[in-house]
Structures are given as structure tokens and as C-alpha cells.
Amino acid sequence: MEVRTIKVFTTVDNINLHTQVVDMSMTYGQQFGPTYLDGADVTKIKPHNSHEGKTFYVLPNDDTLRVEAFEYYHTTDPSFLGRYMSALNHTKKWKYPQVNGLTSIKWADNNCYLATALLTLQQIELKFNPPALQDAYYRARAGEAANFCALILAYCNKTVGELGDVRETMSYLFQHANLDSCKRVLNVVCKTCGQQQTTLKGVEAVMYMGTLSYEQFKKGVQIPCTCGKQATKYLVQQESPFVMMSAPPAQYELKHGTFTCASEYTGNYQCGHYKHITSKETLYCIDGALLTKSSEYKGPITDVFYKENSYTTTIK
């Protein structure tokens, strides 16, 4: 009895394709271990004539594949690729409408935090270190965002349907971005203890939790000093293409032309909904596939993004 075979390709990165001759009487799992086709788990399936010449994702289970996976995804987590594939199996079914010149995501599976993050990423200057993220990001900007969303979920250790947080998501993504040249110098002034300067680099240099107003941050924000008295913390120097200011959701007025974009969060910790506000020729609110415009805006804002380049204080 002759062994019926077909020729397929296996890959971990969709760049390096490895030619395989597979036995049609055995499952993919018996031949390769966990195997995925377009995100779908085909591990328990036997090869079919229609699979001839198709590319299958496999887990990096030998040295060659491990090197290829690390170079593309910059992670050695053995569960990463499987999590990416199972997320992709959902995100490829989502709709990605162009809204006001940006790629958004039609609401499904509690994905409003991903839509808000995706919209924000198209408006701030950011370059990702893992080629996987950078490639998928370019495709997302062009309207094909399924891979990018699935990668975000995998890097953030999230599953489809789980509630997510924009600030946490951005923080994970910033860790995989090139923020080497970003720098922030802060000064804390206390009447009792004097003053202390701190220099922050990388992710810490672009994120701040405690106030939404970048102007206020430049002037000074009140913080408790270690001595128990009130101290003032203010920005001395900022070198970065953008800054992200966050605070627990509270009524906040966004003035046209003073910011790049913002995240609105309605609801409580267990259950809520994100919308995205962007400042173009007027203010726009993007909620999944829905767009509304207004000249002014007041609502429960939790993150505001500002364009920056270089700032030095005039406070002496």
C-alpha cells in the first residue's frame, strides 16, 4: 500500500517557510505537534488534498525554529505562539472599519479597549522592536488589523473576551517599542525636605499616572512627601515624541487643539466601556464603527496623549 502524501510549508514567522512532505494517514499533531492554519487549530486533523502548498504555523520545537521565533517575536515564552494563534482565530472574524481616516474595530468580545489602543497607536510616533509587531502594525494602518490585535493580546497575556485596560495595554506595548531616546527629568520640591531631581528613561519617561493635564504637570502637581507634608512635583525636561497622561476616570474637559487623542471610560472596574476622542479640525468621538463630532467635550476621561518633541522648564 502506497503512502499518500502532500507537500506543505511549516513556519513560526510566515517569513521562513520549511518544506514538509506530510503523510495523509496521520494527523498534523502526530507529525508536527500543535499546528495552526489561519489561526485555526488543526492539530487533530489529517492532511487533505486542499492543504497542498498551504502554510501551517507550528510551535518552535527545534533550534532553527526557536531562533526564527525569537528573532521575529522577541520572546522565548513557549506558550506565546499558541496564544497568538488562538487569538487570531477570533480577531480574523472582527470587522476593521476605516473611521475618520483611522483603522478602528467594530465592537465584539469586549474589544473596546483594543480599538482605543489601536486608534491611539496610529496617532503617536512609535516604532516597535519585534519585527512581528512592526509588520502587523503597518498592515493594521492599511486596514488589516487582525494579526496586530492578536499579537497585542498575546504580548499582554490576554484572551479574547476578557476586559482590558488601555493604560495597561499601552504599557505592555511600550515595553516592546523603541523608547531608548526618551528621557524625563522631574523635580520634587518640599518646604521641609528641599528639592530632589529624578531622571527617568524609556517607558517611565512617557507615562504618568495622577493627572490628565500635561500643562498642569509642567506647572506642578501636589504629591505627598515622605515627611508627610505636601510637596510639588513638576516637569523639568521632556525628550520624547509623545507623552501619555493618565488618571482614574473623572469628568474632564478636553479643549480642541490642546491634545492629540484621549480615552474615555464609562462604567466601573468590573464592567465598563471605552471610547476614543481625537482632536482634528474639530473633536471626534470614535466608538467602534461609530463616529460623532463636537466642538467641545466633557466626560469621564482616563488617558490623554500629547505630541511632544523637546521641553525644558522655565521655572527657576
Score class of each variant (00 low, 15 high):
K92I: 10
D23V: 13
Q195P: 12
H90Y: 14
F80T: 03
P241R: 06
Y155F: 05
L254P: 02
T302G: 00
V3G: 11
T120N: 11
D63T: 12
D63Y: 07
Q20V: 10
T120I: 14
L126N: 02
P131G: 04
L81Q: 09
N61C: 10
K275G: 01
T43C: 09
F148G: 04
Y137G: 03
Q196E: 10
C190T: 00
C225S: 01
L81G: 04
D303I: 02
K93H: 13
Q230Y: 14
L118N: 05
K95H: 14
C285G: 05
T169M: 06
F217T: 05
A140G: 06
V185E: 07
F70G: 13
S50H: 14
G82I: 14
K46H: 12
A115L: 08
K229W: 07
G39C: 13
Q270S: 15
L59W: 11
K44R: 14
V58R: 08
K307V: 14
K275A: 06
H256W: 14
Y311L: 13
N111L: 04
L151Q: 08
F9R: 10
M170S: 00
A262P: 00
T198V: 13
A289E: 15
Y306A: 04
I286E: 01
E281P: 08
L114K: 05
C261I: 06
E204A: 14
A262M: 03
N129E: 08
Y36V: 02
R66I: 09
F32N: 13
S295A: 15
G194S: 02
Q175C: 06
H51I: 00
T11F: 09
K307F: 08
A69I: 07
T226V: 13
H276A: 03
S295D: 13
F32C: 10
Q31C: 13
Q196I: 09
L179G: 06
T313R: 15
K219C: 07
L126S: 04
V188K: 08
K275H: 02
T103V: 13
T159V: 14
L81N: 14
C156R: 01
Y113W: 13
I286Q: 00
L212I: 07
C193H: 03
V189E: 12
L153T: 00
S25C: 10
K307A: 13
Q30N: 13
H18M: 05
K95C: 10
C261Y: 00
V12Y: 07
E253L: 09
E253R: 08
L212A: 05
L212C: 09
A205C: 00
R141A: 09
